[in-house]
Amino acid sequence: MNGILAILSALIFAPLLPGVINKTKAFFSGKKGPSIFQLYYDILKLIRKGAVYSTTTTFLFKTGPVISLAAMIIVLFLLPLGGQPSILFFPGDYVVLIYFLGLVRFFMILAALDTGSSFEGMGASREAAFSTLCEPVLFVSLAALCKMTGQTSLTGVFSGIDSWIFGNHIPVILLILTAIYIIYLAENARIPVDDPNTHLELTMIHEVMILDHSGPDLAFLLYSGSLKLWIFGSVLSGILAAAIPLSPLTHFAFCIGWLILIGVLTGITESVMARLKLIHIPQLLIAAFSFSVLGILILLEEL
């Protein structure tokens, strides 16, 4: 029951997160900014419209958004939120989770290449390169968490981090949080990796890949984008919320609170940082990688 509640709350509230980020950014640049509900309006507008397709495309172009949305929903089934077990939890479920995100990437890249446009090809190429570097970081971070808690499922890991473990492993947890936060920024196409506001050549990664999508397809993509923010945010908040022992309901509220705070933090990061040069992005991701590996090393020492 609680699991279904978690999925429903994700499905309903996920589009708020980009709103929170944008509001924060607007605040920092001294503007009023769009409404926090802007993404809802955009999605509603788009699903009422028709779509235009390129004559070059095949059915794969249309599968991109569909698979993207479906995979995000299945990931929500696997993702525990607020100390509650997820609906589907089993040993190794995070592997399935990460690989479903990989499936999304596979079809998004194909959809981009399907248009035959070199702009979209460029975006696809960069997305492929950077995400390839992101995946190992996630795995190493999860491995560290697994070793820390002795659990092999995401639900087990999150409920395994109690305040005692949290207190004993603060350096490791800090490192892993930093690593996952960098991956959260990279995977969700935020500054400093990608700029969600533009699709100029210099920045084009994610935004340019979806250049040719329109109507409901674009709505699906925007929606699954916000779900992705929610998913990565929940991984972070799941670790953070474990610090204090709480009753289930407050734990849940705590998690949501952290999610919003992470959104605000993202907004701040975007406001105070410039986008990195493309050639420096691998360095950033390798840095994230070294954070997570260092986490494991320190964990090794603490055991």
Binding site: I170, F291, L294
Partner: peptide, 21 residues
């Protein structure tokens, strides 16, 4: 111990930073 760990963690990270900056 935790503070010592954090300081040493910073030491290691700063070394990595020298290599990458």
């Amino acid at each position: 111990k935790t503070i010592a760990d954090i300081v040493l963690m910073f030491l290691i990270l700063s070394n990595l930073a020298f290599l990458g900056i």
